[in-house]
Design a protein around this nucleic acid. Structure first.
Length: 644
RNA sequence: GCCAAUGUAGCUCAGGCAGUAGAGCAUCUCCAUGGUAAGGAGAAGGUCAUCAGUGCAAAUCUGAUCAUUGGCUCCA
C-alpha cells in the first residue's frame, strides 16, 4: 500500500539508503553515495526520484480502487450468503459477516447442524441470486427501528445496544428480499459480481466475539476474487503450498515421522532429519558462543514450587504435564520452559556488578500439554526444544546486550536467506490481570525496546497484547518463500522474574541490586524452525543443511570400484555422501537422486574413469561437465564451511 | 476443548447404497550392463484406523474412541 506524500517518500528513501549502505552513513550521506555511484547529473537523479514517486503514487491509486471494489464484492457476497441461509432456515440468528484476505465469512447460530455437503447447494443458490441483478441500497435507521428489524438475533441486538450506547449511526442494507444491519461498503448491484469468481470454502465453529465463554457459532467461509482467473490463481497457490508442506516433504524426504504409539505432537527424527536439526543447533550454538553465552544442561522434571515462584504455575498449570514420583511427595512437572531453572544457576553464587552480564544458553527438550486441536505438524508440538538463552545484566547493559543479540539474529536469518520483519509486542492495558508486575515497571521496559528498534533503524510494527506475561518483547516474524509469516526469534525484557526469585548482585557502592533478565531465542525452536525451513526451501536444502550432500551414480556395475574410491575420499573429507549401488538404469538412478533434492550428483562411467574425473550435476546450476575430484571436493568443502 | 472433513498395502489413490478388496510407485527375485527424470518379467504385501452395536453376513449401516487436516480459542 502506497499512500504517502512526497516528503515522507523522501524520508523513507533516506531511511532505505541508510539501511542499505554501510552502517556509518547517515541517510543523507547514503543518498549522496548512491548518487555518486549512478554518475548521473544531479537534476536527472532527482527527476528520476520524482518520476518514481509519481509512478508509485498512480499505481497505488489504481490498486486502491481495485481493492476497494474487491472489498465491496466480498462484503456483498457475505450478505447474499446470509440471505440464502435465512431462506433455508428462517429461525437462524445472524451474527456478523466481514471480509478477510481471501474472501469473506458469515457467523450465525443455525437452528440445526449444517453439513459441508450442503455448501455446493448454497453456493448454487447464491449464484442464482447474483444473476438476478439485485440492487443493494441502504438507509439509516434509528434505535427502535433497528431493534424491530434485527431484534430476533441476540447478536445483532448486542451490536445495536453497543452502537446506540456509543451514539453511532445505524444503517440497514437491503439486497433483494434480505435486509441486514451493516456499516456499508457494498456493490450497487449484484451484476457487478462475477459469479464464477467465488466459492464457498468450508465450515468451522467460531466463538461469538472470539471468546471461549461465548456460544459457538457456525462460520461459513467463502473465497472471493474479482475474476475467475484470480480465484484459480489463488487455488493454484494453495496447491503449491501443499506441495511444500513440511509434513508431506518430511515423510517423502525421510526426515521425520509421527507414530500413534509414541503419541501426537511428538515427532521422531530419522537419521537424515536429525542431521538437519543438529545443523540448525550447531549454528545457533556457534552464535551463542560469539555472544558469550555459556551452555548449561538442565533436567526435564522440576518441582512445582519452582513454577509457583516464577508465576508459570498460576498462569499455565493447565498446559503443563505433571509427573508423579513413587517416593517423593512433591508435585512435579515436565518443564515447559527453561527460565526458572536458569535463575537457580544464577542464584547459586553471590554475583558482583563486575560479573554481569551472566549468560546461559540451553537446548533442552520442553514439554507442553497442548490441546489436541492445537497441534500441527512441526509448528505446534508437545515436545520440542528452543535455542534458548537468558541474559542476566545490569540496567545500563540492556541496550548493548540486546543490540548484540539483534545482530546475531540478523546474521542467522541472512544465512538461512529468510526475510523477516520485527514486531514490538506490548501489553494490553485493558487486560492487566494477564501480566505480572506494576505499571511503573512496564512503563520502564517498553520504551527501552522501542528506542532500540528506532536506534537500529529497524522497521517494525507495534502489537498491543502480544507481550509475554512478565515483560514486553521484540518478536521476529519470518516471511517464507511463498509469503507466509511465522513467529521465530524473540527477545524479551523481564524486570519481574529476577525479583520473584530474589536474585541480586552487589553493585559498586556495596548495595544489593536486582539484575534484569533478557529471555531470547535466535531462531526460536529448532524443531519448528526445521519445519519452516523445509517449506521455505521446498525441501531443497542448501548444501550445508542437506542431509545428503552428494549422491554418486555409477553407470553400471563395472564402474562400482572406482565409485567406491570416490565415495571413500569424499567421506574422509567430511562430505555427507551416498553411493547408489542399485542395479538400475542410469535414468532411473538419476530420477531417484533428483527426487531426494540432493545438491550434487556425481556420474561415473568409462569416460570419467579414463580421465580420472567425476561428472558433476548441480541441483542449482545443472550439468557442469567433468571435474577433478579434488577440485570438486575443495568447492563443496568451502560451500559447507561458509554455510552456502 | 469446540465446529467441519478425512482415515483402504510402506507411499499416492481407485472401489464399495452389506456377500471378506484393486492400481501405480516402493520392496524382493530373475533377465537386461545402462550416458542425464521411470528397461522388461514375476513374486510378495491389507483384521479396509480401533472398539462396540444391528444383520445370516459389516471394509460398506449405526454409535463411541483414536489420529490427521482446515477453522475457533490458546501459545511462556
Amino acid at each position: 500500500m502506497f499512500d504517502t506524500d512526497f516528503r515522507t517518500f523522501i524520508l523513507k528513501l533516506h531511511e532505505y539508503f541508510a539501511c542499505h549502505c554501510d552502517n556509518n552513513y547517515t541517510p543523507l550521506m547514503g543518498v549522496l553515495v548512491v548518487f555518486t555511484k549512478t554518475r548521473l547529473p544531479l537534476g536527472e537523479f532527482f527527476s528520476i526520484i520524482w518520476y518514481t514517486y509519481k509512478k508509485l503514487k498512480i499505481n497505488s491509486n489504481m490498486e486502491n480502487q481495485k481493492e476497494d471494489q474487491l472489498h465491496k464484492i466480498r462484503h456483498t457476497l457475505a450478505h447474499i450468503l446470509a440471505w440464502v441461509i435465512q431462506e433455508q432456515d428462517p429461525k437462524v440468528q445472524l451474527a456478523i459477516g466481514p471480509t478477510i484476505d481471501n474472501g469473506f465469512y458469515y457467523d450465525m447460530l443455525l437452528s440445526s447442524a449444517l453439513s459441508s455437503e450442503e455448501l455446493p447447494k448454497i453456493e448454487a443458490k447464491m449464484k442464482e441470486l447474483i444473476k438476478g441483478k439485485h440492487s443493494m441500497t441502504g438507509q439509516e435507521v434509528d434505535y427502535a427501528e433497528a431493534k424491530k428489524l434485527f431484534g430476533d438475533s441476540p447478536f445483532k441486538l448486542e451490536m445495536i445496544e453497543e452502537l446506540h450506547r456509543n451514539g453511532e449511526k445505524m444503517t440497514a442494507y437491503t439486497v433483494g428480499k434480505f435486509t441486514d444491519l451493516c456499516r456499508g461498503g457494498h456493490v450497487e448491484n449484484t451484476s457487478e459480481i462475477d459469479a464464477s469468481a467465488f466459492k464457498l470454502d468450508k465450515l468451522a465453529g467460531a466463538y461469538w466475539r472470539g471468546s471461549e465463554k461465548n456460544p459457538m457459532l457456525t462460520r461459513i467461509y467463502g473465497l472471493a476474487f474479482s475474476s475467475k482467473d484470480e480465484l484459480d490463481k489463488y487455488l493454484t497457490m494453495l496447491e503449491e503450498a501443499k506441495k511444500r508442506d513440511h509434513r508431506k516433504l518430511g515423510r517423502e524426504l525421510d526426515l521425520l515421522v509421527f507414530s500413534d504409539l509414541v503419541g501426537p505432537g511428538m515427532p521422531l527424527f530419522t537419521p537424515k532429519g536429525n542431521i538437519v536439526r543438529e545443523a540448525i543447533i550447531t549454528f545457533s550454538r556457534e552464535l551463542n558462543n560469539e555472544l558469550g553465552f555459556g551452555e548449561v544442561h538442565t533436567p526435564n522434571i522440576n518441582k512445582a514450587e519452582l513454577f509457583k515462584i516464577s508465576g508459570h504455575y498460576d498462569k499455565y498449570k493447565e498446559d503443563m504435564l505433571s509427573v508423579v514420583s513413587q517416593y517423593a511427595k512433591d508435585e512435579m512437572f515436565l518443564k515447559p520452559m527453561n527460565c526458572p531453572q536458569h535463575t537457580q544457576i544464577y542464584a547459586s553464587n553471590p554475583r558482583s556488578y563486575r560479573d554481569l552480564p551472566i549468560r546461559f544458553s540451553d537446548f533442552a527438550v520442553l514439554y507442553r500439554d497442548e490441546r489436541p486441536g492445537e497441534l500441527s505438524g512441526l509448528t505446534r508440538l508437545r515436545s520440542f526444544s528452543q535455542d534458548d538463552g537468558h541474559d542476566f545484566c545490569r540496567e545500563d547493559q540492556i541496550e548493548s546486550e540486546i543490540s548484540n543479540i539483534l545482530e546475531a539474529i540478523k546474521k542467522a536469518l541472512a544465512t538461512y536467506k529468510i526475510s523477516y520483519w520485527m514486531r514490538l509486542s506490548l501489553k494490553d492495558p485493558n487486560n492487566k490481570e494477564k501480566y505480572l508486575g506494576s505499571d511503573e515497571v512496564w512503563n520502564r521496559a517498553e520504551p527501552i525496546l522501542r528506542k532500540l528498534l528506532v536506534d537500529h533503524k529497524i522497521e517494525h510494527k507495534e502489537a498491543i497484547g502480544e507481550a509475554a506475561f512478565y515483560g514486553p518483547k521484540i518478536d521476529i516474524m519470518a516471511v517464507d518463500a511463498i509469503g507466509r509469516e511465522w513467529q521465530i526469534s524473540t527477545i524479551q525484557l523481564d524486570f519481574n522474574m529476577p525479583g520473584r526469585f530474589g536474585l541480586e548482585y552487589t553493585d559498586s557502592d556495596g548495595t544489593k541490586k536486582t539484575p534484569v533478565m533478557i529471555h531470547r531465542a535466535l531462531i526460536g525452536s529448532p524443531d519448528r524452525f526445521m519445519g519452516i525451513l523445509i517449506e521455505h526451501y521446498a525441501g531443497a536444502f542448501p548444501t550445508w543443511l542437506s542431509p545428503v550432500q552428494v549422491v554418486i551414480l555409477p553407470i553400471s556395475e563395472k564402474h562400482l570400484e572406482y565409485s567406491e574410491e570416490v565415495y571413500r575420499k569424499l567421506k574422509t573429507a567430511g562430505v555427507r555422501v551416498e553411493l547408489n549401488r542399485d542395479n538400475d538404469t542410469l535414468g532411473k538412478k538419476i530420477r531417484a537422486a533428483k527426487m531426494t533434492k540432493v545438491p550434487y550428483i556425481l556420474i561415473i562411467g568409462d569416460k570419467e574413469i579414463e580421465a580420472s574425473k567425476v561428472g558433476v550435476e548441480s541441483r542449482e546450476r545443472g550439468q557442469m561437465g567433468a571435474q577433478g575430484l579434488e577440485e570438486f571436493t575443495k568447492n563443496i568443502e568451502a560451500e559447507i564451511k561458509d554455510r552456502k
